[in-house]
């Protein structure tokens, strides 16, 4: 498995408070990497470092580097980087004043895609890839926010996929959804792994076990253990990891 993201001695701060300490690991391409750990241990911050949203918040800073295909992302243009590293948030956030179609097309339009057939094709493919096409085929002009919660989240996935990212960051994408919608998203993630490097932050250990190939366990901003999901869950090297995955704390 080739490394898609290479995290090298990454530390991050909010003001004076350090939230990530010297992370080192590699996220492989075409696989799902889960990041688990108790609340406030820096999982989301790590994701936000990977597409440089972290630096948008005032008073933050980072040290160390993340390499995308061997290139440090600090040297890339943030706009170009975010086209290559897509993100899905915890709460579905469709643009409220845009229709289903325009929500998915938003990223394409930003890239200058104007031609009607290209837009149609791009939106169609993204919706198919997000497993939403059958459900919205006849409601493309409806407001994005009129869909159900699970559909909205898949709409956001489609929106991220439409610009053909290489990496897809998912920040607890199912925590606001019911079990059925969650199951659909998980099925979708299983499909996406064949084309993308997926990084998913989750509070739900069972979900990490179900969907991921690799698991990173964060605790208080430090990487405690990283390895294949099977190994992290069933043959933990660290006592802390074992306690967490067996539910003794967290």
């Amino acid at each position: 498995m080739a490394a898609k993201l290479d995290i090298r001695e990454l530390s991050a701060w909010y003001g004076r408070r350090q939230v990530l300490y010297d992370l080192r690991f590699s996220v492989p391409d075409r696989a799902v990497t889960a990041i688990i750990g108790p609340s406030g241990c820096g999982k989301s911050t790590f994701l936000r470092c990977a597409n440089r949203l972290h630096e948008e918040v005032p008073g933050t800073r980072t040290e160390g580097a993340i390499l995308l295909d061997g290139q440090p992302i600090a040297g890339l243009d943030p706009i170009a980087l975010r086209c290559r590293v897509g993100m899905v948030f915890q709460r579905p956030a469709p643009f409220p004043n845009l229709s289903v179609f325009e929500n998915v097309a938003a990223g394409l339009r930003l890239l200058g895609v104007r031609r009607r057939d290209e837009l149609d094709q791009g939106v169609y493919e993204a919706l198919v890839a997000a497993g939403l096409w059958e459900e919205v085929e006849s409601a493309l002009d409806a407001p994005g926010v009129s869909l159900s919660g699970g559909q909205q989240q898949r709409l956001c996935i489609a929106r991220a996929l439409a610009v053909h990212p290489e990496v897809l960051l998912m920040d607890e994408p199912c925590s606001a959804l019911d079990p059925i919608a969650t199951a659909r998203i998980e099925a979708l993630i299983a499909k996406l792994r064949s084309a993308y490097a997926v990084v998913i932050v989750t509070h739900n250990l069972a979900q990490a076990l179900r969907v991921s190939d690799l698991t990173a366990f964060f605790y208080l901003g430090k990487l405690v253990e990283f390895g294949s999901t099977d190994q992290v869950f069933h043959h933990s090297q660290e006592k802390l990891t074992e306690n967490y995955v067996t539910g003794r704390f967290g």
């Binding site: 948008e56 706009i79 975010r82 897509g86 004043n97 930003l110």
Partner: peptide, 27 residues
């Protein structure tokens, strides 16, 4: 307009102005 809307646009690679145009001015 909630922050998450802005961040969703930023995460798509929108500039500040594009973020305002897509995610903020409408609502």
């Amino acid at each position: 307009v909630p922050r998450e809307r802005r961040e969703a646009a930023r995460a798509l690679g929108a500039t500040r102005w594009e973020t305002a145009r897509i995610a903020v001015l409408g609502p």
